[in-house]
Nucleic acid binder design. Structure first.
Lengths: 251, 251
DNA sequence: CGCCTACTTGATTTGCATCAACGCCGGTGG
DNA sequence: CCACCGGCGTTGATGCAAATCAAGTAGGCG
């Protein structure tokens, strides 16, 4: 397990935050941007495979993902792993560690990631002086809960095929909202082991389930990664309604 | 499905909130109590079986549970149901409906419940003037996410027996923290169907799994309900560490 | 009393895990 | 250059855990 982190110079001042490009995000007003400029303490570049946040640690940081893919997971003592959710640009990570006393899950990068770093001890100041931003944080936490609810429904009650279809439809829609989908196709940098650990299945059965999706032309499996091709087929198989189209805040 | 709600007179002024009895909760300062007195618009008594909040609805309310048991759940179109979590005294429910545009899950009472009712449109005011309370709400949302993470790990990666043991240990510890456990025993008003829908198993297999737990004297199954007897055995079987003992806020 | 709901139990089927073997790369080092 | 990895995906065989099917019991209630 790589744990190296490389600090880089600050490339993205908050008034030129790459996230504001995407129409799905709410814009910040000027005062908020100047506060955030102070709240932000730097940027972090993580290589693929890096563990960005570790379960049990009491991290002093809070991050917003600026680019790249990652995933949140927990493990049992004997090594069984459950991937809880994926993290994409615009997602806030490490809130549990900031608000409660320690993180109960880990986060690992699936691709090179750029993270915007915030200092935890300035969070109280944010709540005191920028209630709209505080509200946004609560909004973001509620959204995470909503995603988890649907994922739990999926793992608990959908069949293996429905589950896999839901996962890829979900990832596809999320990626689309942050401009990662071009010409209606998307490359996701996953191994089948990641998929298995997300769906609660074994690798072998995951492999067979993925072949069924590939047979329906919903996706194509490539060397350590998959290309999502037909969102409609995935939505149809999973019976999932899709994500609401509302604007969302980011920090 | 019962949906009747019975409004009752206000029996619990905020300065005599029954929740402050429990040492697990953080106390409020006087100004907060006077604000909360205004924020609270009444109380709601729900009978067992009542649907307190419905998926898809845009409820104008937010609730804190004062007493009783309930559960949060989602269903698929064909009726498959997944119970996401249980709600106990001190839990805040309906936050998703308040903060985002609509609820994506339903909540049903397992026993008679008394709920403290808050007006959603006063929430912005809370964030503006009581940053500590706003922080508490974020804390509560983070805690819900943390519980969901563990539940998802359980459903995705634990065996049927481990899963069931975890569920009862979890419910036991939560109930203990709000004074519902007497002489180290606890009655939970559940049917085996509820347990099945929580664990992602069929009723029949749930029944057989519960018998194994009963054979180990971890619990006893009664008519529509179960009595949890041996927390240690449950913790042992599940391999679960237990809940952190930290103080927690409530609204 | 009879019906309904919840729980039990055994027989059977099936989905999924496990195990094992193999092919395909990309990387490394002689 | 080739030989030798190790990681990843694919496949088939086998066994087990859990779903499904099918009765049957016991208590609660009109």
């Amino acid at each position: 397990m790589k744990t190296t982190k490389t600090s880089a110079a600050r490339q993205y001042p908050c008034d030129k935050c790459p996230l504001q490009e995407f129409p799905h995000f709410q814009r910040h007003i000027k005062e908020e941007i100047s506060f955030l400029t102070d709240f932000k303490t730097g940027e972090l570049v993580a290589d693929a495979g890096t563990t960005v946040l570790v379960e049990g640690a009491n991290s002093a940081h809070l991050f917003t993902v600026l680019s790249g893919w990652g995933f949140r997971y927990k493990t049992l003592e004997d090594g069984r792993r459950q991937i809880l959710n994926y993290v994409l640009p615009g997602d806030l990570i490490g809130l549990q560690g900031s608000v409660m006393r320690e993180m109960q899950h880990s986060i690992e990068a699936l691709s090179p990631m750029i993270l915007c770093v915030f200092q935890r001890d300035k969070l109280a100041n944010l709540f005191r002086n920028y209630p709209e931003l505080a509200y946004d944080i609560t909004w973001i936490a509620s959204r995470e809960e909503q995603m988890l609810d649907e994922i739990l429904l999926s793992v608990g009650r959908r069949t293996a095929l429905e589950r896999a279809a839901y996962l890829f439809a979900f990832v596809f829609q999320r990626a689309k909202s942050v401009g990662m989908v071009r010409s209606n196709k998307l490359m996701v940098p996953l191994t089948q082991q990641h998929v298995a650990d997300t769906l609660g299945l074994s690798i072998v059965h995951t492999n067979k389930t993925l072949k069924k999706l590939a047979a329906r032309n919903a996706l194509r499996w490539l060397d350590r990664g998959c290309e999502i091709l037909e969102e409609d087929v995935l939505l149809d198989i999973s019976g999932w309604q899709g994500l609401p189209g509302t604007l969302r805040p980011y920090i």
